[in-house]
Simulated scan of single mutants.
Amino acid sequence: MAIALAITAAACWGLSDFLAGLASRRVAVPIVLLLVEGGGLLVVATITVASGEPFFTETRDALSAIGGGLAGVLALGCFYRALAIGTMSVVAPISATGAALPVVAGVISGDRPSLIAAAGLAAIVIGVVLASRQEHADAEAAAAGRTAIVLALISAVGFGGFFVLTNAPADASVLWTITLARAAPIPLVAAVVLAQRPRARPSRRLALGIAAVGTIDLAATSLVILANTKGDLSVVGVLGGMYPVATVLLAAVVLHERLARLQQVGVVLALGGIAAVAAG
């Protein structure tokens, strides 16, 4: 069950990231981030209140969920900007290297993946590294590519922090973990939008579309947090981190981004690693 939930979450994340990345090429990233976070918050807050689920009994769980939300929004902000200025098929796999954080946390907490699963995790990590290799046409593109890689690495740390920080509170309440993780960053992102007053603003139709992307992202977040309550953190974290596979495929089909041979090998390794983890 945990494996299926994590893989589904990865597919949803890959789709939402691709759509948000496209939007970030037309609209200022803070606005995209605010709409994505706000759209997801509206849905999950409604569900949480309607369910009547009790709030956390432990303050540390609430604080951990808030911390996870802040780490996640930092990751998304850097990630969306990287998608806007870089090549999606390069940026997305690099962002998944944050899978190393939950793996380490899982092992420290006592998780012991099988030999097959461990080999799968290694294949996934190697795969995303190979998928990140790219040559640039000119100096300007190379500079943008380097900036995108740095932002993607920062987002990797943030995503890894999100997985780790939301693991414990999710055991107490999945709904409240998601709600707090979504609500906590909203004032910060709104303040950034007000301070920057970005000129690139969406039309009403585009704004609604971006907010809808937030519900897809919410579905992914919900699925991976639920998966964490049913399986090993190390396995769920890496499988959930395989969202770049979907993003790379969408970029190839929709944007006609071309993958070099090493990148193709990386995608195959990542897919093989997912199969190995599932088998283990």
Results as ranks from 00 to 15, higher is better:
V164K: 06
A246T: 15
A141H: 14
V213H: 04
R81A: 04
G68N: 05
R112H: 10
R197D: 14
L262D: 13
T48P: 00
V104D: 12
A62W: 03
V245P: 07
L15P: 03
L15N: 07
L250I: 10
I178M: 14
G40K: 02
A212M: 11
G145E: 07
G110S: 03
R60Q: 09
T221S: 14
I66C: 13
I216C: 00
I47V: 15
I154P: 06
L180C: 08
L271G: 04
E135Y: 10
G158V: 05
L33F: 01
Q263P: 09
A260Y: 12
L83W: 01
A195Y: 13
A28C: 09
G231V: 01
A96W: 08
N167Y: 10
T166M: 04
V43C: 03
E53V: 14
I47Y: 08
V73A: 08
A9G: 15
G38S: 13
L5P: 01
A45H: 01
V174H: 01
V192L: 10
G40Q: 02
A200D: 12
Q134R: 15
V235Q: 02
A75L: 05
L249I: 15
Q264R: 14
V174A: 03
I149L: 13
G266D: 06
T147E: 11
A220E: 00
A117R: 02
A143K: 13
A141Q: 15
F79N: 04
V44S: 00
E53Y: 07
A278W: 12
I116F: 13
A252G: 13
E58F: 10
P185S: 05
P30G: 00
G67S: 08
L5S: 02
A65H: 00
P102H: 09
L175Q: 11
V277Y: 00
F79H: 05
A20C: 10
G240W: 07
A152L: 08
A92L: 06
S222Q: 13
A6C: 02
T59K: 14
A190Y: 09
R133Q: 11
F56Q: 08
L206A: 11
R81S: 06
V268H: 03
G38H: 11
E135C: 06
L175R: 12
T87H: 12
V245K: 04
S114E: 03
F163C: 08
P187A: 03
V36Q: 09
I274G: 07
A23P: 11
V27C: 10
Q196Y: 09
T8S: 15
A191K: 08
A122F: 12
